[in-house]
Simulated assay, not measured.
Amino acid sequence: MAGAFAIALTAACDGSPPPSASLPPAPVVSASAPLQAVSATPPGETALSAASGSPSNPLGLPPLPTRLDPGKRVFTFSDRMLAAARPGSTLVMYSATVVGFDGDDLIIEGTGGTSYKVHPGYVIAVPDKPRIALQAPVLTAWNGVMKHAVIHRFVKDRVGVHLTDSDKRSPEVLLKDPWIVPQVDGLVPGNFAALQEKDTWNHVTLVSKLGGEGPKRWFVLGYGGAAKVVEEVALRPIPVKPRNLKAGLLVWAESVGVLRRAAVVGSDDVGFYTLKFERAGRPVRVGWGHLVPTLDGA
């Protein structure tokens, strides 16, 4: 089916559509917009410590007032991961459902049925009725884990996607009543971004833009899901759907968490490019969100 396709995401609690609610949208930064020079030192990482945290906010993120109605679908971290979270800890985002709130905290029900409190800065909201189209980049849930994917086809009441988080050839995954977050370009929760740390550009996943005084900051996940807080000025958006990358073009692409120079070999599947890294062996497949044509200041 060509064109946009609307999917009603139903509440996990009673099967009826949840009341409409969403996180305040993060300001979108154009991938082509000029950006300021950045510091050569890792920005913002020393601003928070585990000692300032609580069970619902182990990294001590600043207040982020957000109200999501019960039944709202979200991506967040499990209660066990939050209990052990420290700066640099490995964190993985899972599908979950909001069942209430306690002050500024959300009460989350995870896949195991356990309820626990979570600071809104650890949450990415899933829209109730997203509009999606063929070949669109999205966030989705596969086996309960948040994944990046591209819409491949619509099959009756299911959506076929290819997961783009892996460099291996992804088989089609058919999802029924899927969790879908359409991706748009810019510094937006769920998107990938390039983070300058000294002379290196690292590949990170954006989780939430933080409030508070001082420089604008983001909570992000680095290589292996390492949790950190960084200044926005050190981030560069990575296009969610790179276009017109012809064979031979030099780009920056992610390899083991770091963006390195590589040459485009071709694009054999929607959602992927084949690249050859400098001083490397055979070509590799890289999914959308893992490569960027240029990096300002690199």
Rank of each mutant, 00 (worst) to 15 (best):
S22E: 12
A247V: 08
K117I: 11
G212E: 06
K176W: 05
T114G: 06
N143K: 13
D269G: 06
N191Q: 01
K147L: 03
D105E: 08
S32Q: 09
S89H: 03
I108M: 07
R261A: 12
I132S: 01
S22W: 13
A133K: 08
R260T: 11
A263F: 10
P120R: 04
L259P: 01
P171F: 08
H203S: 14
A263Y: 00
Y94D: 12
K129N: 15
G44I: 06
N244T: 09
A6K: 04
C13G: 09
M146W: 02
V258S: 12
W201M: 06
V123N: 05
A194E: 03
K209C: 10
H203R: 01
P127Y: 02
Q36D: 14
D79V: 04
V184P: 01
H119C: 14
P171K: 09
Y122V: 03
A298I: 04
L23M: 14
A125R: 01
L139I: 15
R131K: 14
S89D: 12
V284C: 04
R261S: 08
L245Y: 04
V74S: 10
Y94C: 14
K129F: 11
V161C: 07
D102C: 07
L134V: 09
A40R: 08
T90F: 01
I7Q: 00
E231H: 07
A298L: 08
H162K: 15
F154L: 15
E109R: 13
G3S: 09
P34I: 12
P293T: 07
A298G: 14
G53F: 02
A12H: 02
I238C: 00
V118D: 14
Q183G: 03
G15Y: 05
A11E: 11
P127H: 07
P43W: 11
S16D: 03
L206E: 07
S32E: 10
A141W: 10
W201N: 08
K176Y: 08
L210K: 05
A136C: 04
A2S: 10
S208K: 02
A96L: 01
F219H: 05
H203N: 02
D104P: 12
L221V: 04
K147R: 15
K209S: 03
P42I: 09
R86D: 14
S54G: 10
A85Q: 10
G222V: 03
P58D: 06
V233I: 10
K168A: 12
T10Q: 09
P120W: 07
H290I: 06
G60F: 02
V99L: 07
A262Y: 04
P239Y: 00
P34Y: 12
D199R: 13
L9C: 11
A6Y: 07
R285W: 05
P242G: 11
V264I: 15
S22C: 05
A50D: 13
P43A: 15
V150R: 08
A234S: 15
I238G: 05
